[in-house]
């Protein structure tokens, strides 16, 4: 089943309240996905030339101070960092490949959850309310956020199988549905150099988009291609550093509702996730059309690009 939710702020004045507005959205979709939950928050952007790495380790006794000290020493790079429950966010000028390599050699149990200038992905097993509390979601600030509540069907209940999935800098995807041609696509993408962390079908969808965008396609172009290339049921919500997108498969097997005001765009599996948003009574509320790409980007904060096939 699963529930997906997203909130993209157009009014920067709401950014300090992003987590507080979003937490009830995520928790309201717990009925659709009580196994595990996760979210990708965009904000607190680092300067050009720097990257943020979100790491997660299930061991509460892990010595993060020692891990960061080792990384700093071996990579000869300054690392700013903070801890949030089982996760740590590093900000550094070190290159992605160097950090990945160091983690593989020195901390193989620590998972790299996200890489980018803006994105932080936090996820875990448990009721969505517990996951939200664990990471203090309600206190978070930022420009946009997408989340997922999971009822597992295609792979086991684990932190790794939880959404959002990311396979490229600042790009992430949440998925309600199931893909039927993900194994073949995974092989093609692996040959193109994409690295997968799980056998999950949704990770393949994320990789498909990041691979196309790495070749210069826009988010809209990559999603239009996905309509033809991805086979199966899907409602996707996608985040990029400055963008937010929604796409449903052409048969529209999985639900979705969108709401837009001057202050925000919100997406959810069901309207009740949106019911507490400020000004929702006067928002434009509609069901996104099947096989139609909806994209909002900060460069076009006041207008939406809509394309379809």
């Amino acid at each position: 089943m699963c529930g997906i939710v997203g909130l993209y702020l157009k009014d920067p004045a709401l950014e300090p309240r992003l987590g507080a507005l979003f937490e009830p959205m995520l928790v309201s979709m717990a009925d659709r996905g009580p196994d595990s939950a996760g979210f990708a928050v965009y904000g607190d952007e680092v300067d050009d030339g720097m990257l943020k790495f979100t790491l997660q380790n299930a061991d509460p006794a892990l010595d993060w101070d020692a891990l960061v000290a080792g990384l700093t020493r071996d990579l000869d790079a300054t690392v700013d960092w903070f801890r949030n429950a089982s996760a740590v966010v590093l900000k550094t000028r070190a290159a992605e490949a160097a950090v990945r390599g160091w983690l593989a050699d020195n901390a193989p149990d620590t998972r790299l959850m996200s890489v980018g200038r803006s994105i932080e992905i936090l996820k875990g097993v448990g009721h969505p309310k517990l996951v939200a509390d664990r990471f203090s979601l309600a206190q978070m600030q930022g420009s946009h956020i997408i989340g997922h509540t999971r009822m597992a069907t295609e792979s086991g209940v684990s932190m790794e199988g939880s959404h959002p999935f990311t396979t490229g800098e600042d790009l992430c995807l949440v998925h309600n549905g199931s893909l039927s041609n993900h194994n073949r696509l995974r092989l093609t993408l692996e040959r193109a150099g994409i690295r997968f962390q799980t056998n999950n079908d949704s990770e393949v969808a994320a990789a498909y988009l990041s691979e196309r965008m790495s070749r210069g396609e826009t988010l809209t172009e990559a999603l239009e291609a996905a309509i033809d290339d991805l086979d199966g049921f899907f409602t996707f919500t996608i985040g990029t550093r400055d963008g937010f997108a929604v796409l449903r498969d052409p048969i529209a097997c999985k639900p979705a509702v969108l709401a837009e005001t001057d202050a925000f765009v919100a997406m959810a599996s069901e309207y009740r996730a949106l019911a507490k948003l400020p000004g929702i009574a006067h928002a434009r509320v509609w069901e996104p059309e099947p096989g139609r790409v909806y994209v909002w980007e900060h460069s076009t904060r006041t207008s939406m690009q809509e394309t379809g096939t």
Binding site: E270, Y271, R272, A273, L274, A275, K276
Partner: peptide, 10 residues
């Protein structure tokens, strides 16, 4: 009858 505050309930 009037039902208020439905908030998308099923």
């Amino acid at each position: 009858w009037r039902i208020t505050d439905p908030e998308g309930r099923h």
